[in-house]
Amino acid sequence: MNPWYMLTVVGQDRPGIVARLTDVLYAGGCNLGEASMIRLGGNFTIMLMVQGALPPAQLEALMQPVVDALCLRLHIDPIDGALYQQREPPDVRITVHGADRAGIVARVTGALAEAGLDILDLASEVAGNEQKPIYVMYIDGYARRGVDALQAALATLSHDGFVARLEPIQTISC
């Protein structure tokens, strides 16, 4: 089985980044696994699982022309990759909004981690403007010690300059 790599790509957002990168990987005989690609503050960011027979240096050489052409930065890590695994679906979603973003993430995730939350997906955005930033965060996670424990942890935080709301997610399986 060919090894897996995690590719990290960052650069100014512009049209065609995903298409051109994935095209060169396809042409180079690589398989793509799971990916997360998102725009953050005008940068386009990619985390992408890639499987191929190439050693890391050759993979980098394969991508270099398109990386240079699009003014991107590329980083490659060999990883223990695996697909097709049973995974626990998230059973809770937490949304947080607040005016003051310094410390929100640390305080919320710290309290939740202590109460048994495994974070499966976290995304945050900054809205508003420079004078009045609005910080918004979504977390999908798995409550190892139950949703009530998380709710109790949030209750101790919620009056602290931001609002955190928790909703259980019931996944149907049929």
Binding site: Y84, P90, I169, Q170, T171, I172, C174
Partner: peptide
């Protein structure tokens, strides 16, 4: 909106 999985679609919700 809710989350779904399916016996006919393994390992995905």
């Amino acid at each position: 909106v809710g989350r779904e999985g399916c016996l006919s679609v393994p390992n995905y919700t």
